[in-house]
Simulated scan of single mutants.
Amino acid sequence: MTGFEMVAIYKWLGISAIVVALDLYTKHLIQGAFAYGEMLTFTSFFDLVHYHNEGSAFGFLHDAGGIQRWFFAGVSVIAIIVISYLIQKHRTEKLFCVGLALVLGGAIGNLYDRVTLGYVIDFLNFHYQQMYWPAFNVADSAICVGVGLLLLDSFKKPN
């Protein structure tokens, strides 16, 4: 692998590292500023909260008796390995790798919570009147944006 190829890989991994750092830092701030379940209303549609998600996206399997912690940790580890391989293999495909890097950073951020705490800290809470979107965090946001970029990339014409 040439020096240029290594720089490309480090660039994508750098994006992932920034996502992980922002995710862990914002979760740390929420833990320090809010008691569990506490909410601070900012607008008529947005609150900061301190929730724990023991399941996956939207709380899926949150009540599975604890096995979900290790199941989702295992899924995350497999995803991290596959994504790292794909970044290395496709390191020159910018949009594809940015999407992968965002998903990778989000997966690592949530994996850290899941392994160290047993749950993921969520704190961004959007709603309309009494209809609430499930709370989420920076890692979840990065994963969603990353998946969106991967979908966008899939519509590109082949070279």
Rank of each mutant, 00 (worst) to 15 (best):
T2K: 15
V7R: 13
V7F: 15
A8D: 11
I9F: 09
Y10F: 12
L13E: 13
G14C: 09
G14P: 12
S16N: 05
A17L: 13
V19Y: 02
A21Y: 12
A21C: 14
Y25D: 05
L29N: 08
G32H: 12
T41Y: 07
T41K: 14
F42S: 13
T43E: 10
F45N: 08
F46T: 00
D47I: 03
N53T: 07
A57E: 04
F60N: 13
H62N: 13
H62I: 12
D63W: 10
A64T: 05
G65Y: 15
G66K: 03
I67G: 01
Q68V: 05
F71Y: 09
A73N: 03
G74L: 07
G74Q: 06
A79L: 06
A79K: 00
A79F: 06
A79C: 00
Y85S: 03
Y85E: 04
L86G: 04
E93R: 12
I108T: 02
G118E: 03
F126G: 01
H127R: 11
Q130D: 14
W133T: 00
P134I: 03
A135H: 10
V138A: 07
A139T: 02
D140T: 09
D140Q: 06
A142R: 00
A142N: 01
A142D: 01
C144W: 09
G148H: 04
G148F: 09
D153E: 05
S154K: 11
K157F: 13
K157C: 05
